[in-house]
């Protein structure tokens, strides 16, 4: 068992705990924080089913963003869709061949889409980075962390593409490492510099996720302007809260 394998196994275990615990805590916080008033951005669906459709459109085709700005939508959507493709491609490295889903994700279509999706990801990220630099309004609102986040993702996509198209890593050994991680039976990691860069950046991403703007991913589902039904006259919302406030003398 190599020191490298052990080090990365420890790091990935910690990062996973940080990611999962951090996200669960944040989601619980969002779920528990009260939404005292009805504030959907109207026109809004008047039924829960309608709200589900609205939310589905927001998270799949980015409906509001499409209305807003076609360039941001294009780059943003390409990036997120490529992320999904890359995710499916990577599942193969974390799945034993006995898994019933293994055949599905091993399909030529899934693997090829994931492979070239990497380029799409780069295009999306470069587009978003370009807007941050060249559009004065977006430059104005960008903090160092906003650039770094894009650089981090560019680094992950770039190192991934290098391994796919330029210098292959020992994928069999890597898969053994990943499965070892999941089975708590740590395995050696190939000492391939590009792979180490790729994995290190992913580690950073995992740790940063629950304390950064990446919280938009769970956040959107809890956004009252998008997830509330427009039915305040039909259903009294938050009455208990208001009645308590009334009893407390309006304070």
């Amino acid at each position: 068992m190599s020191a490298l394998g052990t080090t990365y196994s420890i790091l990935f275990s910690i990062a996973t705990i940080v990611l999962v615990v951090g996200l669960v805590r944040r989601i619980m916080l969002y779920a528990r924080t009260p939404a005292p008033l009805k504030i959907p951005t109207t026109p809004a669906p008047i039924t829960r089913g309608g709200v589900a459709v609205r939310m589905l459109k927001e998270v799949t085709i980015f409906e509001s963003l499409f209305k807003s700005n076609k360039w941001i939508w294009l780059f943003g959507w390409i990036f997120h869709f490529a992320l999904l493709l890359a995710f499916f491609r990577h599942l193969r490295y974390a799945m034993s061949p006995d898994n019933p889903l293994f055949t599905l994700i091993s399909l030529e279509l899934v693997q090829t889409a994931g492979k070239y999706g990497g380029y799409a990801m780069l295009i999306g990220l470069i587009g978003l980075f370009g807007r941050r630099i060249f559009v004065d309004r977006v430059r104005y609102i960008s903090a160092p962390s906003d650039y770094l986040m894009l650089l981090l993702l560019l680094g992950i996509a770039g190192s991934g593409l290098l391994m796919t198209f330029v210098s292959h890593t020992d994928i069999v050994a890597l898969k053994a490492f990943v499965l070892g991680l999941m089975r708590l039976d740590w395995q050696p990691l190939p000492a391939d510099p590009i792979l180490l860069v790729h994995l290190s950046l992913v580690l950073i991403l995992m740790v940063v996720f629950p304390i950064s703007k990446l919280l938009h991913a769970p956040g959107v589902f809890f956004s009252p302007t998008r997830n509330q039904a427009d039915d305040p006259r039909e259903h009294r919302h938050g009455g208990e809260w208001a009645d308590r406030m009334k009893a407390a003398g309006g304070q």
């Binding site: 924080t33 807003s68 703007k213």
Partner: peptide, 24 residues
Amino acid sequence: LVKGSRALQVFLDACVKCGACTDK
């Protein structure tokens, strides 16, 4: 206020500075 408003909590966390609102 943040403790008492899911809207505030989510809005303060979720913005990615995409710029979609900047000309609205």
